[in-house]
Each structure stands twice: as C-alpha cells, then as structure tokens.
Simulated scan of single mutants.
Amino acid sequence: MRVTYRHANNKEYWTRRWGDIPADVPMQNKTVYPLKYAEQTVTANDGAILEAGCGAGRILRYYHESGYDITGIDFIDVAVEKLRAVDPTLKVETGDITQLRFADASFRYLLAFGLYHNLEHGLAEAVGETARVLQSGGRVCASFRADNIQTRLTDWLTERRARKSGKTMGKAFHKMNLTRREFAALFERAGFVVESVSPVENMPILYKFAFFRARTHKVFDENRARAEGYRLSGLGQLLQDALMRFLPDQFCNIYVLIAHKP
C-alpha cells in the first residue's frame, strides 16, 4: 500500500474539482470505464442500486434515465447540490461510505468508482458497510488506484508541475494506491467472493500530453472526457494498447473489481 500526498487534502481537492465543472450528462460510451464495468455488474433491472461516490453524476444519471431505481451518495456537498439542481428527480444525497444510513440488505447492486482510495482511514469499515447494505447474492463493482509504474509516474509529473508553478506538494493525504492482491483481499476479508479484478486505464498517462489526444480532445474538457472516455489519437491509442497488452498491471491506473455477496 502506497500513499500519495499533495499540497491540498483529499476533500479540498474534490470540492474544487466538482465545483469547477457542471453536473455530468448521462455517460454515453459503453465501451470504456466506468460504464463498461457497471454494465457487466448490473445485469438486469431487478433491484435497487447504490452508487457510492457518484461525483458529478455520469453513472447515476445514466441509470436513472434508463429507468432503474438508483440512489447516489457523495461526500462533497457541491456535487450533490449541482445534481439536484440539474434534475430534482434524482435520488442523491451527501453520505459517508464508512457509516451508511441505509438498512441491512437495502440494495441489489453497489457501484463505487474511484471511492475507496479516497479514504485515509476506515477502509476496512467502508468495505464492511458495502457488504452490510447488499442483499445476499448482491454484486459490487468498485475501482481503486493501482500501485504501479503508471501511478508513480503520474504522481511524479504532478509534483514536477506543481514545483514549476511555485507550489509545494506538502503532506496532505490525497489517495491510497493498492496492488491487485491488496485490493482483492479487502473484499475477501469482508466475506465477498471476488469474480474478477481487471487492470483498466481510466485516464491513460499519454492523455496527459495533448499531442496524443484525439482531435476533439486537444483542448481539455472534463465533462466531454467523462461522457465519452479519455480518447487518444490513433498513434496514442496504438501505444497505449501496446502498454496494456504487454504490461497491463504496470500501465493501468486503476483496478476494477467485481464481486458478489454469498
């Protein structure tokens, strides 16, 4: 387990990030993270869904507009407020994954993309709460930052850019980084049966360089990228595919786990 530190703490980072962009439109691209993996988990409209860490709402709005019973929670008030403003029919609220207000076995599915690695404390408690609110036979899909070459390079690039701009990285908690085995073990200890753990490139490291981005992504627009996926140019995609083919555990930036509760 490796911890990433920056000059602003995790909650400050996400408050600023969600404050800077509008609420998401429903996600469109089913071939990329996270919708690709949500669709592998939610195989039928046969029960309630909890999206824990719904953020700007791309997954929450996708399932809501598709007629599913889905509730979203996030620990950042501004994200929840923007989603309520854009669609008052959404079931969305501020919540804490380590202390969920829901009764036991309230949900058939739980989606948690980019949530657990934001916890400095209470990681085991969060996964325990995930198990508690799921029904027997219920499924969870969760992503977590990988501890590998790519995330170390990303942290180095971020630190280098911060220093160039005159900032210091500081020692405020930013995120956890886990290996594939560490991530799976978290859920196994909570009683889950892990079905798969996939190395995934949410934002490929090459996307950080405008040269390798698709033509429509040269000028970065976070809402577009979140709806469409972080699209690379032909050359960029060719290089990224090679990295993921030969060294997937080192050049993914997240692991996506799918598991069920017996």
Rank of each mutant, 00 (worst) to 15 (best):
K11M: 08
R139M: 03
A162R: 03
V3L: 14
R152F: 03
K82T: 03
D74A: 01
A214D: 13
A162N: 00
N177K: 12
F144C: 04
Y230W: 11
D221L: 01
E65N: 12
T130N: 05
D221C: 09
A131W: 00
R180F: 02
D69K: 13
R16W: 05
E222H: 14
A38F: 06
E120Y: 11
A142C: 07
N223K: 13
G138Y: 15
L178P: 12
W156T: 05
D20T: 08
N223R: 14
D221G: 01
D155W: 06
G170P: 00
D241F: 10
Q250H: 14
C141S: 06
R231I: 12
R84K: 15
L35Y: 09
L100G: 03
V127D: 00
G67H: 04
I70M: 01
R108W: 12
E182Q: 14
A227Y: 04
A124N: 07
T168I: 11
D46I: 07
G53P: 04
L178V: 12
P248H: 02
T41C: 02
E195Q: 12
N202H: 09
Y255L: 05
R16C: 02
K208R: 08
P248G: 10
Q40Y: 10
P26E: 01
T89K: 09
R16F: 00
S66Y: 11
L239F: 11
Y37I: 04
G137P: 09
A126I: 04
E228K: 10
V80I: 15
L123F: 02
V92I: 11
V78F: 07
Y230D: 15
L239A: 14
A126E: 01
R215Y: 13
A44E: 15
K175T: 06
V80K: 13
A105H: 03
T41D: 04
Y63N: 13
T179P: 10
I21A: 01
E201F: 02
N177L: 09
I258G: 02
W18M: 08
E182Y: 08
